[in-house]
């Protein structure tokens, strides 16, 4: 056996990364959050965060992120489950990921065309007799496109955990007379909960900070924390307020992490 030093050597690149690209940036964000727009030290940004405007924004961000995650999960789980049953499952999985390699802005523009007043979806609605609807710049289009973007990120971890599932367990449950639904509820789902969790993490947290889409697809009718941060950093140049919102996002993230981790014990 090697000595302790070489045994720990493998950790160096990762810890170095944490120091350089996580701790220092957090420190910078924290540092900036204490400065107002004119560069004076102040706690004003934190006060401002607790005004109705920002609290309302936080609430609505949570609501949309929750909706997006829930719908993604509802669609992604059966998809992943069905994919594991296909013949060339790894190929199909890759084909689920490929669309996300096309630039997001381009896809957003395509959705502008698809959902537009004279777009394909409206022509379709007309043909089936529902008639023209405003789809673009509504909550529906925003949630739809967001789910579209996050689906591959949700499917991947769920697929992996389903794929690892020991089939003999399922067979055993069946032999013991469990119905399909019971097998799923009592055996398959609990065993893949880790995949579901990491899927939800990589969906929910980024969904809180979506920006781009809030303008392109929701026409700024939806303002998330991410939109506000982007505005403060890029347009109003109020880095202090932007950083303050970021600090809250980081705190929320840590809380969510801790919550999902304690639940793990119970399973």
């Amino acid at each position: 056996m090697e000595n302790k030093l070489t045994r720990n050597l493998y950790k160096v690149p990762y810890l170095l990364w944490i120091l350089l690209f996580v701790i220092i940036p957090i420190a910078l964000v924290l540092y900036y959050s204490f400065f107002d727009i004119e560069g004076h030290f102040s706690l004003g940004n934190y006060q401002k965060f607790f005004t109705p405007v920002y609290l309302q924004m936080t609430l609505s961000s949570f609501w949309y992120a929750f909706l997006i995650t829930a719908i993604s999960l509802i669609i992604a789980y059966p998809t992943a489950l069905l994919l594991t049953k296909t013949k060339h499952k790894q190929l199909w999985l890759l084909l689920i990921i490929v669309p996300s390699w096309i630039n997001l802005l381009l896809k957003a523009y395509a959705f502008l065309g698809i959902f537009g007043t004279y777009g394909i979806s409206n022509s379709f609605l007309k043909v089936i007799g529902i008639g023209q609807q405003q789809i673009l710049f509504t909550d529906f289009s925003f949630v739809f496109v967001s789910v579209y973007i996050f689906i591959p990120f949700m499917i991947l971890p769920i697929f992996n955990s389903l794929n690892e599932l020991n089939p003999t367990l399922v067979d055993a449950a069946k032999d013991l007379g469990a119905s399909k639904w019971t097998t799923f509820r009592r055996v398959i789902f609990p065993l893949t909960i880790d995949g579901v969790k990491s899927g939800c993490q990589v969906t929910f947290i980024p969904a809180l900070s979506l920006f781009m889409l809030t303008r392109l697809i929701a026409g700024n009718r939806v303002i998330t924390l991410g939109t506000a941060i982007e505005q403060h950093f890029l347009v109003t140049q109020d880095w202090g307020m932007g950083s303050t919102i970021a600090v809250f996002l980081i705190i929320i993230m840590v809380l969510i992490m801790l919550l999902t981790n304690t639940r793990k014990r119970g399973v």
């Binding site: 523009y109 007043t117 004279y118 710049f137 392109l216 026409g219 700024n220 009718r221």
Partner: peptide, 17 residues
């Protein structure tokens, strides 16, 4: 107000959105 948008306003207006 239907939407508050960026440069895509040109495309949207020309397209009679």
């Amino acid at each position: 107000v239907k939407a508050i948008v960026g440069d895509e306003i040109k495309m949207l207006m020309a397209n009679e959105e």
